[in-house]
Write a protein that binds this DNA or RNA. Structure first.
Lengths: 334, 334
DNA sequence: GTGAAAGCGCTAACAC
DNA sequence: GTGTTAGCGCTTTCAC
């Protein structure tokens, strides 16, 4: 690989001048610049990013640490990030932590060691990882999940309100014993959605026993097991609110296996939309999140923080929207 | 951030010794090593990967360039890669090319400039990108999609055979006019699956007009439009074979919108499994690919190539498997 | 506007 | 087994 010195020699200038041309900085005489360009083409010169990174003390890459690449929720979020990043001259790489705090820590360490230009993170765990980044001066934005104990720019959705809407909708549809398949207790989104569920029940004076709540792992399998537990233990609910998309799928699977018909004998509303929600029979009522916007907003915040590292952190909360489809349509009792 | 010299001073040794301790290379006296460890802890020393990368002339990161992060096919493939990478001491970052050759080229350029330790690529385009990597000496493995005109380690599935099985299954189920929703003509996987479709039809002396073939973009929307075209133009088919998972979903959506019942009036078989295939009603018959194994195998090949750069490239082909579910179950005509 | 020179933080000969 | 030394390829003062 040709170095900047090879180009300099070929063009009969100094390495500094080549550097200026490459980076479009300072003013270089037009004729000289042309000669440099020519030399670069002849030698198929590609700047060595490693050297540049060392010198500049950072890369031009953003790391996006997501907690489950298998969740379609992240798909369009990532697109939103990419579209902004590209416009701002950054590349985006994805790191999949798989809801595993150790894996997440490894990726954060890598981002730190590689001196990534910025990190957008949907954290599986506590504040330690995020604080590590902040202390090292790496610009960070938390996305989807609030990070308690860290002063960090954050983009969220109104989880509690979304959950409340979902459960109110089930109540208004005439369901009476509404259960909840909650997410991992440690995750803020799970806590907020559970609160929304409880609030709606209390507001309408419905039973809100703990017996009606089971916790899953935000995965399909967890939704299946939570649903099974709700069916097998105690008095059976006639509707469920599931706190994320994959668990909703798992719950439906369980109901199908047991031959329990939705929405007649069990109303279902899920949190998070899924691209194929209307293909599932019956089509699924969901609390949809503005995923693309979520990504876009996080990327914009990151760009702003990079430009102005000392500004106070801000939190942006985006609205969810209840999409009523067939799975919550209780046949009226004649 | 503390540097290696700070640690050396603190421990009363040379930077070289610290480096040896950090990298676990060569033998360092136990007592000295302990002092160094201690100093590292005291200073919260983190090696600067940028400097190390420059010196070593490569990072310890593998880039995985995938063509559509929204396709669940890639999910478990990536897990397969990650599991091997981690064992071999590499981090994995994902780059989403979105089936866009220009975006792919940008990521390849980034991988080159950042001197990634290796690249696993599911290429959206032609050989140029892959050859660029090979010429620069970056170890590469092609995954899922063969790259013509590049001598590169490759992991594939038996697309043609899988498609053939799918179509034969439809024939045996009693369907008569079997259409195909093919993928983008330029993609080898699409070509192979189309060939398998045609071969099965010819072998059973069924009509194989071009009128029965439409091409989509491997996205849901493309599947929807191709299905609509098949329904609206010419003689209507009674079964379809769709060349990938997202297009299958799109086709089903179209059929649902038109009120055409599956499998009675239209048999459906898709290529690529989807995690929720059995939740879609009717449950979906698919040609399943060993996605995790695909990723694992690619990662192993990459590790081997890194260890032995000059060995001749090899191609591994994994088997697909037909999973018969309800969508291809034609009611026998009494 | 351009060049000389120093150095980012690390590793790997090489000498001892 | 340990230290000295010379870069990796680039950017950026600082002179001119």
């Amino acid at each position: 690989m040709a170095t900047i010195y090879d180009v300099a020699k070929q063009a009969g200038v100094s390495a500094a001048t080549v550097s200026r041309v490459v980076n479009g900085r300072a003013s270089v005489d037009t004729a000289l610049a042309a000669r440099v360009q020519q030399a670069m083409r002849e030698l198929d010169y590609r700047p060595n990013a490693l050297a540049r990174n060392l010198r500049r003390r950072q890369t031009s890459i953003w790391a996006v640490v997501i907690s489950d690449i298998g969740n379609p929720f992240f798909t369009s979020m990532v697109r939103g990030i990419e579209d902004v990043a590209q416009g701002a001259g950054y590349s985006v790489v994805l790191c999949n932590s798989d809801e595993d705090a150790a894996k997440e820590a490894r990726y954060v360490a890598a981002a730190l060691e590689e001196q990534m230009a910025g990190v957008i993170i949907s954290s599986a765990g506590r504040a330690a990882n995020v604080n590590r980044l902040i202390e090292a001066g790496t610009p960070v934005v938390a996305i989807d999940r609030e990070v308690r104990g860290a002063a960090v720019d954050t983009v969220l959705v109104d989880n509690e309100h979304g959950a409340e809407l979902a459960v109110e909708h089930l109540i208004e549809a005439g369901y009476e014993r509404i259960a909840c398949i909650g997410g991992p207790r440690r995750l803020p989104t799970a806590q907020q959605r559970l609160r929304g569920y409880q609030r709606a029940l209390r507001a309408h004076r419905r039973p809100a026993d703990d017996e009606l709540v089971r916790h899953g792992d935000y995965r399909q399998e967890g939704g299946y097991q939570a649903m099974a537990a709700l069916l097998d233990e105690g008095e059976r609910p006639d509707a469920i609110f599931a706190a994320n998309n994959l668990m909703t799928i798992g719950a439906l699977e369980c109901l199908a296996d047991r031959g329990i018909s939705v929405p007649d004998r069990m109303g279902v509303v899920g949190f998070d939309d899924i691209p194929w929600a209307h293909l599932v029979r019956p089509s699924l009522t969901t609390v949809a999140q503005p995923t693309y916007e979520l990504g876009r907003t996080a990327a914009l915040l990151l760009a702003e923080r990079i430009a102005e590292p000392s500004r106070p952190p801000s939190t942006v909360t985006l609205r969810t929207e209840l999409k009523v489809r067939a799975s919550s349509n209780r046949p009226s009792v004649a």
